[in-house]
Write a protein that binds this DNA or RNA. Sequence first.
DNA 1: GTCTATAGCAGGATAGAC
DNA 2: GTCTATCCTGCTATAGAC
Lengths: 188, 188
Amino acid sequence: MTAKERLLSAAKDLLWDYGYEKMSPKDIQKKADVGQGSFYHHFESKESLAAQAVREISDDMQNTLSAVFETSKPPLERVKDYLKQPREALRGCRIGKLVQEVSVTHNSLLPPISEYFARLQQELALLLQCAQQEGAFPLEADATQLAAAISAAVQGGYVLSRALNDPKQMEMATSGILSMIEFMERRL
Amino acid sequence: MTAKERLLSAAKDLLWDYGYEKMSPKDIQKKADVGQGSFYHHFESKESLAAQAVREISDDMQNTLSAVFETSKPPLERVKDYLKQPREALRGCRIGKLVQEVSVTHNSLLPPISEYFARLQQELALLLQCAQQEGAFPLEADATQLAAAISAAVQGGYVLSRALNDPKQMEMATSGILSMIEFMERRL
DNA sequence: GTCTATAGCAGGATAGAC
DNA sequence: GTCTATCCTGCTATAGAC
């Protein structure tokens, strides 16, 4: 890996564990085994590097999404598969945890994050609507609201897991949603 | 208000908007209109002050919880009332947003936060079980899982609102859960 | 209790040699 | 492209006078 690639990779890791504000240029240089000179040769600033790192994280996560959503399974199964995905609950969401920082919502890091969540919700809503058209899910449900609730439960699962220092919180939150979906499926 | 009270009040505000790491002693002093000398006269350190501020925030929020949960309404109504509470979605959860910071999960600030969420989930689960015993909610639902899902949806609502810079995300997430609960209520 | 002065250190970035 | 030296600022805290 080139120095530039190592810097990006290190930044992606540190953003996950430390967040944007607490991640210092020196932390990145040390983790990437790269000198200060190289850092500022390849990137204009910490924000510039972070913006590119967040862009890559968003792309990675959208690819993961595609792997779950673009299958031949019935639409509602794909929604359930999303809920059942393995997650590093205590580490937090690579992308969701960043939005709590003032320095992130007020700079160039936000757009790739918004993009990820917009796409997630859009795909979930679409799948739910398909399920409804196929008669696999109650028509009275509001697909858009449900999509928001599902993505919120996952993000909240991360928060609760960290707050209670217990990875099972994620499992409970997603299982709770899953149970409700299956209930609605049975009684349509 | 005494200088000590002003310091605590300022810290509570800054924790909400800036978070723990980005909130500096100088920020607090300035907002409280108190000199550096006073700051370190009343508190040992930034962490010490923050710990006390978080303790108070947790207490405040538990009082808000009591106001919603300790009424004479039917149990399931109280759960719905919790979901319908007004929230400053874009500002984030006063307490939930803190747990994403490494410096918070690794120090004395976490316990009051854990306490709040533990109590929230316990009360929600209890109310759901009451509703089940009264025949107002399906027995096949797992109250503990649902309580986790409900509290997660609220926390996730905050995250999504900030990520998409749209306060309606909170409303959609909580309405989504609300709809599912009402669906289950109708078809028990 | 409150003030000002000061200290030590880290964050973020620049300069110029190699 | 990479290295070392250097700069300025802000963070966190201490010291000692009033």
